[in-house]
Simulated assay, not measured.
Amino acid sequence: MSPVTDTPETPSDDDARHAAKMAKKKAARDRMMATKDGEKGLIIVHTGPGKGKSSSGFGMIMRCIAHEMPSAVVQFIKGGWQTGERTLIETHFSDLCQFYAMGEGFTWETQDKSRDIAAAQRGWEKAKEMIRNPEIQMVLLDEINIALRYEYLDINEVVEFLATEKPEMTHVVLTGRNAKEELIQIADLVTEMALVKHPFRAGVKAQKGVEF
């Protein structure tokens, strides 16, 4: 009986093809990245009927906090709710993120248009103050698209302010479904959340940790 000897393993043809393919892809990616060396403050829009618009915006705020980048949140609709994001930021990260809940709930809850308009206007004044502050590097305008959709705010005023007064390196994130076309046109990054399934349609109410 011949002795058993260890032989070095050699990659299969499939492994070799995969490695070559990935090497080629990496080289192409490296060439593309070498041309991207600019930085600027971005106008970012999260819109669409699907869930995740505010959640994504708050994810960016948490990244800023992790990088010790001063930031701010202005909520235009959900001010009447004590959300998990608000509790977390106000309790643990108020030194890095200012939080202003300016809304009083959805329009069908207040049932008072003039009151909703006044709340939106107060929110916009606070938003401008935060954006103008040179120390703040990201401002999240949560659900501002709803205020714009119902014309509680003038879209032309918002677009003009972002185009002319936003500091060069300040990021501004605007969330809410039905983003106005004028806003989409001036944005640097636009993401539309698509609705595929939602538990609400199956009779499941909004739940802590998922919706708020």
Results as ranks from 00 to 15, higher is better:
Q137M: 10
K51F: 07
V196R: 06
L195T: 13
K25V: 03
Q185D: 09
C64M: 13
V173A: 10
V73R: 11
E165C: 12
Q75I: 06
I186V: 15
T35V: 04
G57Y: 10
A16K: 11
K40E: 13
R31Q: 14
L141D: 07
R86T: 05
A120Y: 00
V173T: 11
N178I: 01
T87N: 00
G84V: 01
H171T: 08
I155Y: 12
G79D: 05
K208F: 02
I186G: 09
R29A: 11
I136R: 11
G38W: 14
C64R: 09
D112S: 00
I146Y: 08
T35C: 04
P3I: 06
E211M: 04
D13P: 02
A23G: 04
L174R: 11
I136F: 08
V173K: 10
R132P: 01
T107G: 01
E85I: 06
E109F: 05
S55R: 08
D30P: 03
V196I: 09
E151Y: 01
P49Y: 03
I43Y: 14
W124F: 04
E109W: 05
F58H: 08
S54V: 00
E9H: 11
L148Y: 06
K197E: 08
F58R: 04
R132C: 04
V4F: 12
S114R: 03
L96T: 13
L195M: 14
D37F: 14
P8Q: 01
D95N: 14
L162Q: 10
E39K: 15
S54R: 00
R201P: 00
